[in-house]
């Protein structure tokens, strides 16, 4: 091999090496070693998020319900501890439309998102019945059997629910809250929320 060929091969190889280095560390960026810096922020204890040891899921609740319509759905209750005492508080709320948070006037509270609907005391027995409003303006939620029972670990209980929306219920977004105390792996309250929207009825 001649001297010029060797020089040419060397030059080509070094160019290839430079190309490789450029792919790894493009101009203007530093190597990972160079970007590492000693910690400068004090450590902080971040609490562990508790898990749910008793929980619900809802199947069949439509996202949209028409005025004057009644819908049926099921609520499944799961238990992941030796014994679950399932006696939730169930509430109905109406959701207000608020401007996007970035569009809010800084520091000026726009008011609560949820407005509690004045529900009559739930009727318990074989079924739980929750009624918010009166006459045609009422929203009625019935759950059978009544959600007040004990479950063993691994057990799943299926409840049948019916939601009736009166013909004069104001269109908008509504929320069912299932509030369970003692359902978390740490002391506290678990609130599971199921939203639906009421739209004008046909005709």
């Amino acid at each position: 091999m001649g001297r010029s060929s060797l020089l040419l091969l060397t030059a080509a190889s070094i160019s290839l090496l430079a190309l490789g280095l450029w792919i790894q560390y493009p101009f203007g960026s530093a190597s990972p070693e160079a970007t590492k810096a000693p910690p400068t922020i004090p450590p902080e204890d971040i609490p562990e998020t508790p898990i749910s040891l008793m929980t619900t899921s809802v199947e069949g609740l439509p996202s949209v319900v028409r005025q004057g319509e009644a819908v049926s759905f099921v609520i499944k209750v799961y238990c992941f501890k030796p014994e679950c005492d399932f006696r939730p508080e169930i509430t109905l709320t109406r959701l207000r439309d608020l401007p996007p948070p970035e569009g809010l006037t800084p520091g000026k509270f726009p008011g609560p998102l949820e407005v509690n609907l004045s529900a009559e005391a739930p009727v318990e027995g074989e079924a739980l019945e929750l009624v918010a409003g009166e006459g045609d303006s009422a929203i009625r939620l019935a759950i059978r059997p009544s959600p007040a029972f004990t479950l063993k670990e691994g057990e799943v209980k299926v409840l049948n629910a019916t939601l009736e929306v009166g013909q004069a219920v104001a269109p908008g977004r509504y929320r069912i809250n299932v509030i369970m105390r003692g359902a978390l792996s740490k002391p506290g309250t678990l609130i599971e929320t199921y939203d639906f929207e009421v739209v004008p009825g046909q005709g």
Binding site: K186, T189, L190, I191, E192, T193, D195
Partner: peptide, 10 residues
């Protein structure tokens, strides 16, 4: 104090 966890549906 006690935790409050709120979560949405599936």
């Amino acid at each position: 104090g006690d935790y409050v966890v709120r979560k949405g549906p599936d």
